[in-house]
Design a protein around this nucleic acid. Structure first.
Length: 209
DNA sequence: TTGTCGATTGAG
DNA sequence: TCAATCGACAAT
């Protein structure tokens, strides 16, 4: 069921339960916001330019974890969702922590910003980097089979959401026409929408017409 | 080998 | 609104 186009799989992951058992700490989260990333037809996808060492999991079987490092400090987590040889993945953008709030809070406090430990519970996994941090996910976990009962990170159950909202993806400046971001309207953990920005290094944000 | 940019976040 | 911060990858 996971091996379909990312746009079809993504809404089905809303309400799904994800469990991580990392460093001896259990965290269970209910997914509340996701984004679909297709393969070589999606300019916003890491797989757009073909297979590389980093995005290899996106080209593998469905249901595997793809963690990537971004902005020099954050990890984000995806679930692959296509047939082997075809690239597609769903980015996990937000979740409600169901079990293990203390562990998630400890991980937030261990980050560079101490005040993160004071985040309201609904915001602990609000945003892709916060979600990955709360669950303890990083590059070492790339490739894990989320459908394997022996895996430290598992997809326990798929959700059956009554109502799903969709809209453009956050933080991307290509492929913005596709409404490939999906979220549960009643979830407090859903992150805020921010359009993609293209910055020029060394110069102030001055955009020439 | 070098240079640019990024599926973000938190502080000011 | 902007800086932090470093890996990936395109350009040279």
């Amino acid at each position: 069921m996971l091996a379909q186009a990312a746009g079809a799989v993504a809404p089905r992951l809303l309400g799904a339960t994800l469990e991580s058992w990392i460093d001896g700490r259990q965290v269970v989260a209910r997914i509340t916001e996701v984004e679909a990333y297709e393969g070589q037809c999606d300019p916003a996808s890491h797989a757009f330019r073909g297979r590389t060492k980093r995005n290899a999991v996106m080209f593998g079987p469905a249901g595997h974890l793809y963690c990537y490092f971004v902005y020099g400090m954050h990890w984000c987590a995806n679930i692959s969702c296509a047939e082997p040889g075809t690239a597609a993945a769903v980015l996990l953008r937000a979740a409600d922590i169901v079990v293990g709030e203390a562990a998630a809070r400890a991980r937030a406090a261990a980050g560079r910003a101490a005040p993160a430990a004071a985040l309201p519970a609904a915001k602990l996994a609000s945003g892709p980097a916060r979600l990955a941090r709360s669950l303890g996910l990083h590059g070492e976990h790339t490739g894990l089979d989320l459908l394997d009962a022996a895996s430290p990170v598992r997809l326990l159950a798929l959700g059956e959401p009554a109502e799903v909202c969709s809209g453009p993806r956050v933080g991307v400046n290509v492929g913005v026409a596709e409404p490939w971001r999906f979220w549960l309207p009643d979830a407090g953990s859903v992150s805020a929408f921010r359009p993609g920005v293209r910055r020029r290094r060394g110069t102030r944000q001055t955009e020439q017409p």
